[in-house]
C-alpha cells in the first residue's frame, strides 16, 4: 500500500483546502478557537472516512445517472449521526459550531472525494484516502485557528487546554480583534494559500535547476 504517498498528498501536495481549494466556507467560518477547529476537523475526517468506505462498497450498485443524489444521501446519513452524537456528548462544541455541523453535507471536500476517488477505488484505499484528506483538512483548520486565536484574542488552545480557558499569552485588550471577525478568516486563509504557492514555486524552481 502506498499509504505514505496518500498521506503526503492529503497533508501537503493535494491538500483539500490549500491546493484543491474545497470546503472554504467552514474553513473560514469556524476557525476562531482551537476547540472549534479540532472539533470540526475530527468530525469531517470521520464522516469522510465512513462515506468513502460506504460509497466504495456501493460503487457497483449505484446507477451512474443518480450517483450524485445517492452520494448526498449517504453523506447526509453520516452527518446526522455525527450531529446527534456531538449534541449528546460534546454539547459545547455542538453549540459553538452550530449550523456548520449539518452543513458538512454540502462541504465540497466530501462530495469531491466520493466522486474523484471512492467511486473508482476499492474499499481499503478509499478509507485511507478519506482519513488522509480529512487529516489535511484538520491540519489547515488547526493552523488557522491557532493563528487567529493567538493574534485575535491572545490565547492558545481555548476550549481545550487549561480547563477550557486556554493559555493566555498577552492581555486580551492588545489583540487584533479583527482577526476573530469574519475579515480575519478571509485574510488568514488568503495569506496561508499565498505561502503555500510560494513554497511550491520555490521547490519547483529548485527541482528545475
Amino acid at each position: 500500500m502506498n499509504f505514505k504517498k496518500q498521506l503526503k498528498e492529503g497533508l501537503l501536495t493535494q491538500n483539500p483546502v490549500l491546493v484543491q481549494q474545497l470546503g472554504m466556507c467552514s474553513t473560514m467560518a469556524i476557525t476562531t478557537s482551537l476547540s472549534n477547529g479540532l472539533g470540526m476537523g475530527v468530525s469531517v475526517t470521520i464522516i469522510l472516512a465512513l462515506s468513502n468506505i460506504f460509497i466504495s462498497l456501493l460503487r457497483k450498485i449505484i446507477p451512474d445517472k443518480i450517483r450524485i443524489a445517492a452520494y448526498v444521501v449517504v453523506i447526509a446519513g453520516f452527518v446526522t449521526m455525527v450531529d446527534l452524537l456531538l449534541q449528546a456528548y460534546l454539547q459545547d462544541i455542538a453549540e459553538s459550531l452550530g449550523v456548520f455541523i449539518p452543513l458538512i453535507v454540502v462541504n465540497c471536500i466530501i462530495l469531491a472525494r466520493a466522486e474523484a476517488f471512492a467511486s473508482k477505488n476499492r474499499v481499503l484505499p478509499s478509507a485511507v484516502d478519506g482519513i488522509c484528506q480529512g487529516l489535511g483538512y484538520t491540519l489547515v483548520l488547526v493552523v488557522m485557528s491557532v493563528i487567529r486565536e493567538f493574534l485575535g484574542s491572545g490565547t492558545f488552545g481555548s476550549g481545550v487546554l487549561n480547563g477550557g480557558e486556554g493559555i493566555r499569552i498577552f492581555p486580551e485588550s492588545y489583540g487584533a480583534q479583527m482577526l476573530v471577525l469574519p475579515v480575519g478568516g478571509f485574510l488568514t486563509l488568503g495569506v496561508l494559500i499565498a505561502v503555500v504557492q510560494w513554497m511550491q514555486d520555490r521547490s519547483a524552481r529548485k527541482g528545475g535547476k
Binding site: 478571509f186 485574510l187 488568503g190 499565498a194 504557492q197 510560494w198 514555486d201
Partner: peptide, 12 residues
C-alpha cells in the same frame, strides 16, 4: 506578488 496571484488576492 507572484505568490498572491489568483486565489489568495481574491480572498484578501
Amino acid at each position: 506578488p507572484k505568490c498572491f496571484r489568483g486565489f489568495p488576492i481574491a480572498l484578501i
